[in-house]
């Protein structure tokens, strides 16, 4: 309980610090949103009026407090570029990117864990070594290029999907998911290769431990030793790695959304930064921060659930 409270307080502190940093960073970055909006031809009077309408004439601390206070009521401000509430704007994009990242993560876990187990079982076989080399190559391919390769082979050559044929989830959830499979794979594949490399090594290291010898001394088969003892122990260091990947995948999705023409918030973020659409950018950054804090919290709790050696006090 004390632990949960502590975590909650530190999460709030983190969010506060990030919010201050984000807000003031955008305030000092050169570039005038009003000028952007009205164009270089605008008269000084018109600019002044626009600034005042956008609330830019207020002192910074006042603007910060207003912004934060509005956040608590669910009002994330109004987009400078579109004159639409940020909440409404993001409401369309969030599920798209969310699904993309979730799908990639599921693929990562579903592909890498069985593959790693296979590798560990067949350590130093010819196929094991060949696939490690293949993994090394896949690891080196950047996701956007992986996306292009997938589009070419599976989209254009094999015609398994229509490149650029994104279907929104409101229209047809089935076809939406079918289309998202390919960009998700592009995001997941290099990470699968990395995860397999790590998890395989962890399992082999655990396999050399004394408790594994003990398990064999009781007459366990190799499979039993693996599933009863090795897997859980080897999984511990993997947990942090997977969590890092999950947060990293959000960043990866920005590029992949471009390659596959998906209207998620990745593309939207780029446009908003270039257009100095501060309310949008700030809302996205705050959302990402909250997401990362949440992932870390869940990781922490999972560690506590799996490893009895982590005590309440630490």
């Amino acid at each position: 309980m004390r632990y949960a409270l502590k975590k909650l307080i530190s999460a709030i502190v983190t969010l506060f610090v990030v919010s201050v940093a984000v807000f003031f960073a955008f305030a000092v970055i050169p570039g005038d949103p009003a000028l952007r909006k009205l164009g270089t031809q605008a008269t000084p009077e018109a600019l002044e009026m626009m600034r005042s309408r956008m609330g830019l004439d207020q002192p910074l601390p006042v603007r910060y407090v207003q912004w934060v206070a509005a956040f608590f009521t669910g009002d994330m401000g109004t987009s400078f570029s579109y004159d639409i509430p940020v909440g409404t704007l993001l409401g369309d994009k969030l599920p798209v990117t969310g699904f993309l990242v979730l799908f990639s993560f599921v693929l990562l876990v579903v592909l890498s864990i069985p593959l790693s187990i296979w590798h560990a079982k067949h350590e130093n076989s010819r196929l094991d070594r060949a696939m490690l080399v293949a993994g090394q190559v896949i690891m080196a391919v950047p996701p956007f290029f992986m996306g292009i390769l997938l589009t070419f082979f599976f989209g254009i050559v094999l015609k398994l999907f229509t490149p650029g044929g994104y279907v929104s989830w409101q229209t047809d959830p089935g076809r939406f998911l079918a289309y998202l499979f390919w960009p998700s794979l592009a995001i997941a594949l290099p990470r699968v290769a990395m995860t397999v490399k790590l998890f395989r090594a962890e399992m082999l290291r655990e396999a050399g431990r004394d408790y594994v010898r003990t398990a064999y001394s009781r007459g366990h088969s190799t499979m039993d030793v693996l599933y009863r003892h090795v897997l859980k122990n080897a999984f511990l260091p993997l947990l942090t790695f997977l969590a890092m990947n999950l947060t990293d995948m959000v960043a990866g999705s920005v590029v992949i959304e471009q390659v596959f023409g998906i209207p998620g918030f990745g593309r939207f973020l780029l446009v908003s930064i270039l257009g100095r659409d501060y309310p949008v950018v700030e809302a996205i950054i705050m959302g990402l921060t909250a997401f990362i804090i949440l992932v870390n919290l869940v990781t922490d709790l999972l560690y506590r659930a799996i490893d009895p050696r982590i005590e309440e006090a630490s």
Partner: peptide, 16 residues
Amino acid sequence: IAVIFQEPMSSLDPLM
């Protein structure tokens, strides 16, 4: 045939 080992700490599975 049963065996006990030198290191009773590392010879037990820490997570079980």
